[in-house]
């Protein structure tokens, strides 16, 4: 889950910087000639600079391989199983369909009839699973495969006026087998 990773990476980064500052604060009253301090500090700087560059390069390679933009530009390699048209209005969502089987690749074609909105799909744990902006004059295509059946909530994540916080819509994700074989009793969650 990216949320958890984001939290942990941030906590480690902030914690490391805080630790360095605390150490510097605690030793600030214990004087040493500036030339010596500078020499020592500057000697280690290239190493952690390179470590940061390496970390950033690795993170870039790792995360830029799977971007969500291709479908919007008509360059998606795999066709979607289901396409859902979505239009944001002040302050409601107009959607072609709100019942979707799990396990299918769904392409939400998102636009707006008035102002900018943010089309964000929340799972039952109140976590965003996918989002894109709903913009007048443009259609953004966000693709998602629902793994777990249940009720999902679309929330607006771009401020759009008075009832912005109430601009929600429910999506029901049915078990994968229901769509393929409605009378199957096999386990539904994947």
């Amino acid at each position: 889950m990216y949320q958890k990773a984001a939290w942990q990476v941030s906590l480690i980064g902030i914690g490391l910087i805080a630790a360095v500052y605390v150490l510097v604060y605690l030793s600030s009253g214990n004087p040493e000639e500036f030339g010596t301090v500078k020499k020592r500090m500057y000697a280690i700087r290239p190493y952690w600079f390179l470590a940061l560059v390496t970390l950033g390069t690795w993170m870039s390679i790792d995360t830029l391989a799977d971007l969500p933009y291709a479908a919007t530009h008509g360059k998606a390699e795999q066709p979607a199983d289901i396409t859902v048209g979505v239009t944001g209005h002040q302050w409601y969502w107009d959607m072609d369909r709100t019942e979707i089987p799990a396990g299918k690749l769904v392409a939400f074609r998102v636009t707006s009839a008035d102002v900018n909105h943010g089309f964000a799909i929340y799972n039952a744990d109140h976590q965003v699973v996918a989002q894109t902006q709903a913009m007048p004059g443009y259609t953004n295509v966000v693709r998602h495969t629902f793994r777990r059946p249940g009720t999902y909530t679309v929330r607006c994540l771009e401020y759009c006026g008075l009832a912005h916080h109430n601009m929600t819509k429910k999506i029901t994700v049915t078990p994968a087998e229901t769509a393929a074989a409605p009378h199957s009793h096999a386990p539904s969650a994947t």
């Binding site: 949320q3 993170m59 995360t63 971007l67 969500p68 965003v128």
Partner: peptide
Amino acid sequence: TIVVNQVMHNT
């Protein structure tokens, strides 16, 4: 980070 932004933007 784009993949993070997709689940944390405007939170």
